[in-house]
Computed example of a mutant assay.
Amino acid sequence: MTATSYILGIAAALLTLAVVIEMLRRRRLRERHATWWLIAGTLALIVGVFPKTLEWAADVAGVAIPINLVFFVSVVILFLVCIQHSSELTKLDDQTRTLAEQTALLELRIRELEQNTQSSIEADDQ
Rank of each mutant, 00 (worst) to 15 (best):
S87I: 14
L80S: 08
I77S: 06
I67Q: 10
R111E: 11
F79V: 10
V73G: 03
E112M: 10
K52M: 10
R26P: 00
R109K: 13
D93E: 14
L24M: 04
I110Y: 04
F79S: 15
L89V: 07
G41I: 05
V81G: 01
E22T: 06
H85Q: 15
G41E: 00
R26I: 00
D94V: 10
V47R: 04
R26E: 05
E88S: 12
A100D: 14
E101D: 13
V63C: 11
I77H: 04
I83Y: 04
L105E: 15
D94R: 15
V19F: 02
V70K: 00
L43P: 06
H33S: 12
T96H: 09
T96M: 14
E22I: 06
R30V: 10
L29A: 02
L108H: 14
T16I: 06
D59K: 13
E114M: 07
R97F: 10
V76F: 12
L99A: 12
V73I: 11
W36Y: 15
R97Y: 10
K91E: 14
L38S: 06
R97G: 05
Q84D: 14
T90R: 12
V75C: 05
I83P: 08
A104E: 14
I83V: 15
R111F: 00
A64N: 02
T35K: 06
F72R: 05
G62M: 03
A44V: 02
L89N: 08
W37E: 03
T35C: 07
V73D: 01
T98Y: 13
L99K: 15
I110H: 06
I67E: 11
V76N: 02
N68A: 04
C82T: 11
V73K: 01
L43Y: 06
A61F: 11
R26G: 02
R109C: 07
L38V: 00
G41L: 04
L45I: 06
P51G: 01
K91T: 13
G48E: 01
E112H: 13
I67A: 12
V81F: 12
E112A: 11
R32H: 11
P51V: 09
P66T: 08
S87E: 12
A34M: 03
T42G: 12
V70Q: 03
F79K: 02
K91I: 11
S87W: 15
G48L: 05
L43F: 07
R32M: 09
E55M: 05
R32Y: 12
L45T: 05
I39H: 00
M23D: 01
V76C: 09
V63M: 09
L38G: 02
E88D: 12
V20P: 00
G41Q: 04
L80W: 13
D59W: 07
R111C: 07
N68H: 12
I21E: 00
T98K: 14
T96L: 15
V49E: 01
L17S: 02
R28I: 02
E55Y: 14
R97E: 15
E112P: 03
Q115C: 03
Q95N: 09
S87A: 14
R25K: 10
I65H: 13
A18F: 04
L113M: 08
T42E: 01
I46W: 07
V81M: 13
V73E: 00
V81D: 13
L29C: 07
T90C: 12
T53Y: 11
T16C: 00
E107K: 15
R97Q: 14
L92C: 06
I21T: 05
